[in-house]
Design a protein around this nucleic acid. Sequence first.
DNA 1: TATTGTTATACTCTATAACTATA
DNA 2: TATAGTTATAGAGTATAACAATA
Lengths: 160, 160
Amino acid sequence: MRTSHRHRSEGDTDRIQAEISLGPLAGYVGFMLRRIQTTVFSDFIASLGELDLRPAQYSLLEVIDANPGLRQSDAAAALGIQKANFVALVNELERRALVQRRRSTADRRSYSLHLQARGRRLLEAARDRHDAQESRLRALLGAQDRDRLLALLNRLADVS
Amino acid sequence: MRTSHRHRSEGDTDRIQAEISLGPLAGYVGFMLRRIQTTVFSDFIASLGELDLRPAQYSLLEVIDANPGLRQSDAAAALGIQKANFVALVNELERRALVQRRRSTADRRSYSLHLQARGRRLLEAARDRHDAQESRLRALLGAQDRDRLLALLNRLADVS
DNA sequence: TATTGTTATACTCTATAACTATA
DNA sequence: TATAGTTATAGAGTATAACAATA
C-alpha cells in the first residue's frame, strides 16, 4: 500500500520495504546489550523523573546508604565515575540537603559522605520506583530466568 | 594494614573497610545491565579506536549495508537516533567518502543512503574488530550460554 | 496539513590537565 | 612525592523547537 503508487525511474535505487533490518548487528551480544540497556534505562529515567532524581544521583544515594561515611573518592570509584566529574554530583545533592560532606579527621584531605534525613526519604521513594521496574522485568522473564540473566551478565564483567 | 595506624577521634564517622558495597543495586537487573553494558561498550570503543570510527558510525555502516538505499530517516529510526542528531552523523561519513546521499526521485524530500567503496572497506575492517570482541564474549560464556543470554535480552525488549 | 531533512540550542555524561591542601 | 578534592575545558550523546522544501 505504502509504495503502491510510486513512480520508479531508471536510476531510482531507493528501498521500498518498510522494515529496516539491523543486519548482522542483531546477532551481536554487544549490540543487543546496548540496545536493551538503553530501553530499560529510559524506562527507569521516566519513572524517577517525578522525583527530580537522575539515575547517577539515585545510585549514589544507594551506595552511601550501604556504606555510611565512605570517602568521596571511594564512592566515585564504586560507581565508575571520575573524581573530577563526581564533584558536581555531590555538590548538587548537598545543596538539596540530601547528602552531607564531613571532613575526615583521620585524613584531612578527604570527605566522608552521609545521608541526611531528606536524602533517606528520597532514597526510599526512589527505591520503590526501582523495585517496581524490577518487578516488571521479572514479570517479563520469570524469577528463574531473571536470576539466570543476572548470572550471565556477571560472567561478562571482565571482558577486555 | 591500611588503617592500622589511624587515629580515630570521637566524632570520626569515616569508614574503615576498603571494599565499597553497591548495596541492593547489585541485585537489580537494570543496574547490572547498565554496568556490564558500559564495560563491554568501552572495550568495543577501544578496539574500534584505531579505525577512527565510533560505535554509532559503525552501526550506521552496518545498517546501510544491510538495507542499501534506505531513507535517512528510516536509518535514524532503526538506530534509535533522532533525525535532528542524525544529520551531523551522516555529514561526517559523507565528508569522509564512506557514505553517499542521493535525492530520492520518488519523494524529493528524502535522501537514500548508500555505501561508497571506502565505506565498504572500512565496514569490513570494523566488522572484524566486532567479530573479535564477540569471540571473546563467547569464550567467556560458551556458545550455548551466549545464545541463552541473547534470547533473554530479547525478551526484555518491550519493557515500559 | 503533514513529513523530510535541517539548524540552533541546551543539557547530561565523560575525559584530561592542572591546581590546592594535605599526607 | 603522592593523594583527595577541585576547577576548567572540551567532546560526544541526546532532547526540543522552528524552519524550508516537498508531499
